[in-house]
């Protein structure tokens, strides 16, 4: 919506990704596309490398092989300046919110605005207020320190910071983990709303079956070092793979499904 590359079909293209910790291989020959304007949910068992995959895309864990193409540019092949301009176009919400504990919520949201846009004063404050309000936090929350917030509020504040620069692409690491079911459902709703209104593309790592039903356009399943299935939920659910069957046809999978259809 805000910057170019509208004609590019895929916002992220992963080709032949291999990541490893010493001899332990997490991903091998992994391909994955994230299409512009979709919410992609990445699921997989504990230790399947969901978070590692996200870290590989955002530059925190360099893959030992393969290419990461974001906004049509090779991220790991880019120079410092190109990389910075790519990084400005995405926002990341870490699992615990990862707010700077010495800053208030509003100061947290203003940090990237100061740093990247060099905007100070009233405009920065208004922009922060806008983002804080958009993620559903009260104006009073702006002056609070992260330690004074509940888990759900912390995630919302983290999302406000991720959205500070109006990113086209947002990474969410288990956004609903640790929230109560009501808070989790509200957060799903918030993500869908923001995606609709701001035209975001969302890459979401999740464990939460309800989130998959409520928010995700497509689902990618990580297992055996690569993506074993990727597509709309109904399609993926029918894939004949033991892990997928166990995941979606297990008691929790069925409960989430019936909650959606019933």
């Amino acid at each position: 919506m805000s910057t170019g590359n509208d004609n590019a079909q895929n916002m992220i293209e992963l080709r032949g990704i291999r990541t490893q910790f010493d001899d332990f291989i997490v991903h091998d020959n992994l391909d994955l596309d994230v299409r512009t304007g979709e919410i992609l949910g990445v699921v997989g068992g504990s230790g399947a490398g969901k978070s590692v995959l996200m870290r590989a895309i955002i530059g925190l864990k360099r893959p030992s092989a393969g290419t990461v193409t974001v906004f049509g540019e090779d991220f790991y092949g880019a120079n410092e300046e190109q990389r910075l301009s790519i990084e400005r176009r995405w926002g990341v919400l870490f699992q615990g919110g990862a707010l700077f504990s010495s800053l208030t919520v509003a100061q947290n949201v203003m940090a990237p605005i100061h740093e990247h846009l060099k905007i100070e004063g009233e405009l920065a404050r208004d922009m922060a207020a806008l983002k804080i309000s958009m993620v559903g936090l009260a104006a009073e929350a702006g002056a609070k320190y992260p330690s004074e917030l509940s888990g759900g509020m912390r995630k919302r504040a983290g999302l406000a910071r991720a959205l500070a620069l109006d990113p086209e692409l947002v990474f969410l690491d288990e956004p609903t983990a640790g929230l109560d079911p009501i808070g989790a459902a509200k957060f799903d709703e918030l993500i869908v709303n923001l995606k609709e209104s701001l035209g975001l593309t969302v890459f979401m790592v999740t464990h939460d079956l309800d989130t998959l039903h409520a928010a995700c356009d497509r689902v990618a399943v990580l297992a055996e070092h690569h993506v074993i299935a990727c597509g709309p939920l109904d399609e993926v659910r029918r894939t004949d793979h033991p892990w997928i069957q166990e995941y979606f046809a297990g008691p929790r999978g069925r409960a989430a499904l019936s909650a959606k259809t019933g």
Partner: peptide
């Protein structure tokens, strides 16, 4: 259309917020 939607989106969120603790 897109710009109008965006204008619509922000209209409810214009209230200033507190930055520093009291």
């Amino acid at each position: 259309e897109a710009h109008a939607a965006l204008m619509e989106q922000v209209v409810d969120h214009l209230a200033p917020c507190h930055v520093h603790p009291l």
